[in-house]
Lab assay of single mutants.
Amino acid sequence: EELVKLQGERVRGLKQQKASAELIEEEVAKLLKLKAQL
């Protein structure tokens, strides 16, 4: 659960930094994978 929170914050940070869409999608995919494991 802690990992999900951390990953969510990372995604939010990337969006604020206007990171590339590919990078954000990659991180979102990791986030969804972590959530699925809960």
Rank of each mutant, 00 (worst) to 15 (best):
E1G: 02
E1M: 07
E1H: 00
E1D: 03
E2F: 04
E2T: 01
L3Q: 14
L3N: 04
L3F: 04
L3K: 08
L3H: 04
L3T: 10
L3W: 00
L3D: 02
L3S: 09
L3E: 14
V4L: 06
V4C: 02
V4I: 10
V4F: 08
V4M: 08
V4T: 06
K5D: 04
K5G: 03
K5Q: 10
K5S: 02
K5C: 02
K5T: 06
K5H: 05
L6V: 12
L6N: 10
L6A: 14
Q7Y: 01
Q7M: 02
Q7P: 01
Q7L: 02
Q7W: 00
Q7K: 01
Q7N: 02
G8Y: 04
G8D: 12
G8P: 05
G8W: 02
G8I: 13
G8V: 13
G8A: 13
E9R: 02
E9K: 04
E9N: 11
E9L: 02
E9G: 04
E9M: 05
E9W: 01
R10T: 11
R10K: 15
R10G: 05
R10I: 10
R10N: 06
R10D: 08
R10L: 10
R10W: 00
V11T: 07
V11L: 06
V11D: 07
V11I: 10
V11Q: 11
V11G: 08
R12V: 10
R12I: 09
R12E: 15
R12A: 15
R12D: 13
R12W: 10
R12Q: 13
R12P: 09
G13P: 05
G13K: 14
G13L: 14
G13I: 14
G13D: 12
G13A: 15
L14P: 05
L14Y: 02
L14T: 04
L14I: 05
L14V: 09
L14S: 08
K15E: 14
K15S: 06
K15T: 11
K15F: 07
K15R: 08
K15H: 07
Q16A: 14
Q16N: 12
Q16Y: 03
Q16W: 02
Q16F: 03
Q17E: 14
Q17G: 09
Q17I: 03
Q17T: 11
Q17R: 06
Q17M: 12
Q17D: 08
Q17L: 05
K18T: 08
K18M: 12
K18W: 01
K18L: 07
K18P: 11
K18I: 03
A19R: 05
A19H: 04
A19M: 10
A19I: 02
A19W: 03
A19Y: 01
A19E: 06
S20D: 11
S20N: 11
S20M: 03
S20G: 10
S20F: 00
S20I: 00
A21V: 07
A21E: 13
A21Q: 11
A21H: 11
A21P: 14
E22C: 08
E22A: 12
E22F: 04
E22N: 12
E22D: 11
E22S: 11
E22G: 10
L23I: 14
L23S: 05
L23P: 11
L23G: 07
L23C: 12
L23K: 11
L23M: 15
L23W: 02
I24F: 12
I24L: 11
I24R: 06
I24D: 12
I24T: 10
E25M: 06
E25L: 02
E25Y: 02
E26S: 14
E26L: 09
E26K: 14
E26H: 15
E26R: 13
E26V: 08
E26C: 10
E27T: 00
E27R: 00
E27Q: 05
E27Y: 00
E27A: 08
V28K: 13
V28P: 08
V28C: 09
V28R: 10
V28Q: 15
A29N: 06
A29I: 01
A29S: 08
A29K: 04
A29V: 04
A29Q: 12
K30H: 05
K30L: 06
K30C: 03
K30S: 05
K30I: 05
K30R: 06
K30P: 05
K30F: 01
K30W: 01
L31D: 15
L31W: 06
L31N: 15
L31R: 07
L31E: 15
L31C: 06
L31S: 11
L31I: 03
L31T: 09
L32M: 14
L32N: 15
L32H: 12
L32D: 14
L32G: 13
L32A: 15
K33T: 08
K33S: 12
K33I: 03
K33F: 04
K33P: 09
L34K: 08
L34D: 12
L34N: 09
L34G: 07
L34C: 06
L34M: 13
L34A: 09
K35Q: 15
K35P: 15
K35Y: 02
K35S: 15
K35R: 10
K35L: 09
K35D: 15
K35I: 04
Q37W: 01
Q37R: 07
Q37I: 04
Q37F: 01
Q37G: 14
Q37T: 08
Q37H: 05
Q37N: 09
L38C: 13
L38P: 10
L38N: 09
L38E: 14
L38A: 14
L38K: 14
